[in-house]
């Protein structure tokens, strides 16, 4: 088990290097820092001096990979690749193009992101599993057929519609909660209710339908027939036998995204004005702040790999058949 975890952790290293090289290529090889600077300064009437000044200010004036002018080890370290990409490995994200410390921003902004993501996830999981269990209990009846159709309809509606419609209905017409904004401490709750509720409703369609499929797959297995042959009631069979088996894929599916919750939701946060990492990313994309985007790509990758590892571990906890070696 421990050997397995160590091996998986070691396996993450080449992946992170790969991701790092890929983003480095995207940002510095496909486009030269020169072009980036011109984009930021507004193209046409920018002088070469202004471009140079911008590059120097943001640390883009160094050579890409190899600096022949520096001495010793600095030939390798005094480069864009080292300062902008390699430093990410020790979670040193450096400064954004607008001069703020990215690491500090991330630490500050992850809490509002979690405040939305965690309740949405838990409530959604509970609601979807309950609804799916209900549909599975009433399988092949009109309730089940209607429920599945409703799920497909809910799935076909754009997430933007849920947000805009919800904001208009609850925030503007009914004036129950503020449309957007955020506050510290307990006051934040009133800003969180709407995004969480909308997040949960948005997930019902696909979630319930998927869980229902999982339940039905389990119900068709032989051990369920054995359980029925023991004279157990349908409820007992569903809760004690089917649910426990179906929970394995459900839980492990949740575990893989747990670390990514830190990253927040791009759309929700920007619509509701929540100062989390999602809106941070969106702002960076819209301001074309490459340093932040690079930092978030790296962070996202690390969290995803962590999620994969946690998934494997949670499998061994949830499923007695699996032993990691």
């Amino acid at each position: 088990m421990i050997a397995y975890i160590i091996r998986r952790a070691l396996y993450a290293i080449p992946i992170l290097i790969g991701v790092n090289l890929l983003t480095f290529m995207l940002f510095f090889v496909v486009n030269s820092p020169e072009e980036v600077a011109r984009l930021h300064l507004g193209d046409k009437y920018t002088t070469q001096e202004q471009v140079e000044a911008w590059k120097q200010e943001h640390g883009y004036d160094k050579p890409l990979l190899y600096n022949p002018e520096a001495g010793g080890l600095e030939q390798l370290t005094d480069t864009i690749f080292y300062t902008k990409s390699v430093r990410l490995f020790v979670f040193d994200f450096g400064n954004s193009d607008s001069g703020r410390n990215i690491g500090h921003d991330i630490r500050q902004r992850m809490w509002p992101s979690l405040a939305i993501a965690v309740p949405s996830l838990l409530l959604g999981l509970l609601l979807n599993a309950t609804l799916a269990l209900m549909l599975a209990f009433f399988r092949a009846t009109y309730l089940d057929v209607g429920g599945v159709v409703l799920c497909v309809v809910l799935m076909s509606i754009s997430s933007l519609f849920y947000i805009i419609g919800g904001q208009y209905l609850v925030g503007k017409l009914l004036q129950l909660v503020p449309i957007s904004g955020y506050d510290t401490g307990f006051e934040a709750v009133k800003f969180l209710i709407l995004p969480v509720v909308i997040g949960v409703i948005y997930g019902i369609g696909s979630g319930t339908r998927w869980y229902r499929t999982l339940f039905l797959e389990e119900i068709s297995k032989d051990y369920v027939r054995t359980a029925r042959a023991k004279g157990l009631s349908e409820q007992w069979v569903l809760f004690r036998h089917v649910l426990r088996n179906a929970l394995i894929p459900i839980l492990t599916g949740v575990v893989v995204i747990l670390p990514l919750l830190f990253m927040g939701s791009l759309i929700t946060e920007s619509f509701f004005g929540i100062p989390g990492l999602g809106s941070y990313t969106i702002d960076a994309i819209q301001r074309q702040d490459f340093s932040i985007v690079r930092a978030m790509v790296f962070l996202g990758t690390v969290l995803y790999i962590l999620g994969l590892l946690l998934t494997d571990i949670s499998y061994t906890l949830a499923d007695p058949r699996i032993r990691l070696r």
């Binding site: 890929l22 995207l26 994309i285 978030m296 790509v297 996202g300 990758t301 995803y304 790999i305």
Partner: peptide, 12 residues
């Protein structure tokens, strides 16, 4: 490729 969050790869 999969470990880079999709939106960010697209954005980049």
């Amino acid at each position: 490729l999969n470990s880079i969050p999709g939106v960010l790869l697209i954005a980049a």
